[in-house]
Design a protein around this nucleic acid. Structure first.
Lengths: 110, 110
DNA sequence: GTCGCCTATGTCCAATATGACATATTTCGC
DNA sequence: GCGAAATATGTCATATTGGACATAGGCGAC
């Protein structure tokens, strides 16, 4: 397929490649979930390394212990926003975050 | 202050260092906003590089053109979740994402 | 054992993010 | 300039996420 033609189809919103859109979606959904999981793990690692309890972190976040517990469990009722805020609050650097994101990708490859 | 004592206070939820908690919060809030902004910019860059319209991306996401527009504008009504889903849907790699996150950090240093 | 402290899980309802839609504005080829 | 396509902005109802609370489970010190 010509590159231009492909782009035109894609502009209309169609995934032109090899697989159906609902399949694409589930693939991306999985990648997203793994990413969340990796970052949630990051929260736990960093929190423990800092010697903070869930309650202490919750207090800093203006949240509650139960929410932190759910967050670290990557419960689907917690958003990436909260996870990222937590990481920043605990003092994660961009490098740390990048590391966890890459961990998600390599975990996927396995 | 002894390290152990500091940890005990922190476990109870207090930021022991140099600044008040509400200040801490606003600092972290800024870092978070900059991160979102950097990733939102990433969405636009990658979308355009792929020759996709906002409507096309929206269709792939099961979202709407207006939401994509708001996302790229880093409107505060859009979550990091949606931004990240978009990046993955457009085909960003972990490396890409890491790059944008670091961009946020260096922008901050400036 | 049991007493503290930490973490996990479930349920409220308030707050926020969502897609959809309508409509305005910009952009670009002609 | 015009017209069409792309993007921006505002609003709304509905769905998802939020903190709070209660309570259960776990784990080490005594």
């Amino acid at each position: 397929m010509k590159h231009i033609k492909k782009q035109r189809l894609e502009r209309a919103g169609w995934v032109v490649g090899d697989s159906a859109q609902f399949l694409q979606l589930s693939v991306e959904e999985n990648r997203f979930i793994e990413l969340k999981l990796a970052l949630a793990t990051g929260v736990r690692e960093l929190r423990e390394r800092r010697g903070l309890t869930q309650a202490a972190l919750a207090h800093r976040l203006g949240s509650s212990q139960s929410r932190v517990a759910k967050m670290e469990a990557a419960d689907r009722s917690v958003s990436l926003d909260l996870i990222m805020r937590s990481l920043l609050t605990i003092g994660a650097t961009a490098t740390d975050i990048a590391k966890w994101i890459k961990r998600a990708e390599t975990a996927r490859a396995a």
